[in-house]
């Protein structure tokens, strides 16, 4: 499937995931088809137990499907081994977590350097790229601060800088505002929007918070291990609400489009 002449970053075809819990077989995903295109800002939503987390783990290359195919940047990653997945995560995916997951007693710049260390980037270049990344999220003045010297919003910005530093194919954000107050949440979501708008970075949110979805152009709802709906929408929050039109890379409105 082609869209605007570009192929999807993420392409899931018939993805199933089965767990063995004692004698019971749990079918966390029961056949998921999703395509996500470059420059999209998309929310994957669903109640707990819907398979949303399993889907995120597979998209994030933390886990592999039991059945089906997952192509990331056109490369089939659905049968890779642990260490191969680690390399994929390192180069192609930037994670942002609800609880920031920064290394304590470690400066912001050192935290941001972490993915570059495992990517084998040399010291001087590493520092430069980490600093650039921190400036991009507005923390150019706080390079050598440690997490306990930063506010929650600033810590999440460090985490976003860390996700950006390897110029990944996409950012995967798991409830990124879950630990933030509402004012800071808005700032962080607007930062994501700016990165999406100005830099064309693909961002996938995994959330059960409808407010997060309001910042996105597309919402995929998951229930009982299946895609319940996949809706293109006009973002109603943050900078996209005032700018008006969604960015040019607006995805197709696949199935049941609702106004």
């Amino acid at each position: 499937m082609e869209q605007n002449g570009s192929s999807p970053v993420i392409s899931l075809r018939g993805v199933k995931k089965l767990y063995q819990m004692g004698d019971v077989e749990v079918r966390a995903l029961r056949g998921v088809d999703v395509d996500i295109y470059p420059g999209e800002m998309i929310a994957i939503m669903g109640p707990s137990g819907s398979g949303k987390s399993t889907l995120m783990n597979i998209i994030g290359c933390l886990d592999v499907p039991s059945e089906g195919v997952y192509e990331l940047d056109g490369k089939d990653v659905s049968r890779l081994k642990d260490d191969q997945l680690a390399a994929i995560r390192n180069h192609k995916i930037g994670f942002v977590f609800q609880s920031f997951n920064l290394l304590p007693r470690t400066t912001a710049v050192a935290n941001v350097e972490l993915p570059l260390i495992y990517g084998g980037v040399s010291g001087r270049q590493r520092r430069q790229r980490a600093e650039d990344s921190l400036r991009l999220v507005g923390l150019g003045e706080r390079l050598d601060h440690k997490p306990n010297e930063l506010s929650g919003g600033q810590q999440q910005r460090v985490a976003i800088a860390r996700a950006l530093v390897n110029t990944p194919s996409m950012i995967l954000a798991d409830e990124p505002t879950g630990n933030l107050d509402s004012k800071t949440s808005v700032e962080i979501m607007e930062l994501f929007q700016r990165l999406n708008q100005e830099r064309g970075i693909t961002i996938v949110f995994v959330t059960h918070n409808p407010e997060t979805a309001d910042y996105c152009h597309r919402v995929v709802r998951v229930r009982d291990g299946m895609v319940e709906s996949d809706i293109a929408q006009r973002a109603t929050a943050g900078i996209y609400a005032t700018v008006g039109d969604p960015p040019p890379a607006l995805p197709p409105a696949p199935q049941e489009v609702q106004p």
């Binding site: 642990d82 680690a86 995560r89 994670f95 290394l103 972490l114 993915p115 495992y118 390897n166």
Partner: peptide, 16 residues
């Protein structure tokens, strides 16, 4: 444990 999880998430291999 969480630190190890994070390191693996951002690309640390088993050997690392």
């Amino acid at each position: 444990t969480r630190e190890i999880g994070l390191r693996k998430a951002v690309g640390a291999k088993r050997a690392d």
